[in-house]
Lab assay of single mutants.
Amino acid sequence: ENVVSAPMPGKVLRVLVRVGDRVRVGQGLLVLEAMKMENEIPSPRDGVVKRILVKEGEIDDTGQPLIELG
C-alpha cells in the first residue's frame, strides 16, 4: 500500500511528517479531527514520504488519499 487514505471524513489539523522523511510502521503521519476528536493516522508500513497530498486545515472525505509512501 503506497497511498495512505483517510479512514473517516474530517479536518486535517497537523501534518507530522515532511517529504523525504523515513517513517516506520505505526508512526503518526498526520492528525485528523473528526467528531470533535483528534485521531492520529499511522503509517501502514516502513517507507519514505514521497508526497503529501493534503494541507493543514483542509477537509477530507473517507478514502481520500492523504500521503504517498515510497
Results as ranks from 00 to 15, higher is better:
D21V: 08
K50C: 13
S5T: 15
V31E: 01
R22D: 09
D21F: 06
V3R: 06
R14N: 06
V49F: 00
L29H: 00
Q27G: 04
D46F: 08
I59F: 14
G20E: 05
R51L: 07
K55M: 12
L69S: 02
V3H: 09
K55E: 12
A34N: 13
E58F: 12
P65A: 11
N2T: 15
P65G: 09
L53V: 05
G20A: 04
G28K: 09
P65Q: 07
Q64M: 11
R22W: 14
P42C: 14
M8C: 12
E56T: 10
E68L: 13
V31K: 00
G26W: 04
I41F: 04
V3Q: 07
S43V: 02
I59T: 10
K55L: 11
N39F: 15
R45M: 14
V25H: 10
P65I: 11
V17Y: 00
E38M: 10
P65V: 10
L13H: 03
V3M: 13
G26E: 02
D46P: 07
M37Q: 13
R22S: 12
E56G: 09
V25M: 13
P7S: 08
L66F: 05
V54K: 05
G57D: 06
K36M: 14
D46Q: 07
I67Q: 01
I67L: 10
S43F: 02
K36H: 14
G26Y: 06
I67D: 02
G28R: 07
N39G: 06
L30D: 01
R51C: 10
D46R: 06
L53T: 03
V25S: 11
R24S: 12
Q27I: 06
V4M: 04
V12D: 03
I67R: 01
K55D: 09
M37K: 12
A6T: 06
R24Y: 12
P7R: 07
V54Q: 04
L30R: 00
K36W: 12
A6W: 08
R18H: 11
V54W: 06
I41D: 01
P9W: 09
V3N: 06
D21C: 08
G57L: 06
L32Q: 04
V25R: 14
L66Y: 04
V23S: 01
L16F: 03
A34D: 09
V54L: 06
V54E: 03
I41A: 01
R18A: 13
G10A: 06
R51Y: 05
I41G: 01
L13C: 08
V48K: 05
L29S: 00
I67E: 01
K11D: 03
E56V: 14
D46N: 12
P7T: 09
R18F: 06
V17Q: 00
L29M: 06
E40S: 08
I41V: 10
G20H: 06
V23I: 08
G63N: 10
E1C: 15
G28A: 14
E58M: 12
A6S: 11
V54A: 10
V3I: 14
K55S: 12
N2F: 15
P7G: 09
K55A: 12
R22V: 13
G20C: 11
E33F: 13
E33W: 15
I52E: 01
E58L: 10
L30E: 01
M37V: 13
V48T: 10
L16G: 02
G26F: 05
L16M: 09
I52V: 10
G47R: 01
G26L: 05
R51H: 09
E33Q: 09
A6R: 04
E40P: 07
I41H: 01
L13Q: 04
E40D: 06
K50D: 05
R18D: 11
P9T: 09
Q27L: 05
S5W: 13
L32D: 01
L30N: 00
M8D: 00
D46W: 07
P65E: 07
P44N: 05
A6P: 04
P44R: 03
V19G: 02
R24D: 07
G20N: 06
V23F: 02
I41K: 00
T62G: 09
D46K: 06
E68N: 04
R22N: 11
G63E: 07
M35D: 14
V31Q: 01
L16I: 06
G28E: 04
G20P: 00
E40K: 08
G70M: 14
G20K: 02
R51T: 09
E38F: 08
E38L: 11
M37D: 07
E38A: 10
L16K: 05
L16T: 04
V3S: 07
E38N: 08
R51D: 06
V25D: 05
A6E: 02
G70V: 14
M37S: 11
V4F: 03
A6I: 05
I41Y: 03
G47F: 01
R24L: 11
E38K: 08
L32Y: 15
Q27V: 06
K50F: 07
V12G: 01
E56C: 09
I52M: 02
M37Y: 08
N2A: 11
S5V: 15
L69K: 02
L29Q: 02
G70L: 13
Q27T: 08
I67H: 02
I41T: 02
V3D: 04
V17D: 03
L13M: 07
G70Q: 14
R24E: 10
Q27P: 00
G47I: 03
I41S: 02
E1I: 14
P7Q: 07
M35F: 13
R14A: 08
R45E: 05
S5L: 15
P42Q: 13
P65C: 07
G70S: 13
P44I: 05
I52G: 01
G10E: 02
V15D: 06
G26R: 03
D46H: 09
M8K: 07
V48P: 01
K36N: 15
K11T: 09
I59Q: 10
R18V: 11
M35S: 11
P44W: 05
R45A: 11
V4I: 12
V12I: 13
G28H: 09
P42D: 05
K55R: 12
L13N: 06
I67P: 02
A6G: 04
S5M: 14
L66W: 06
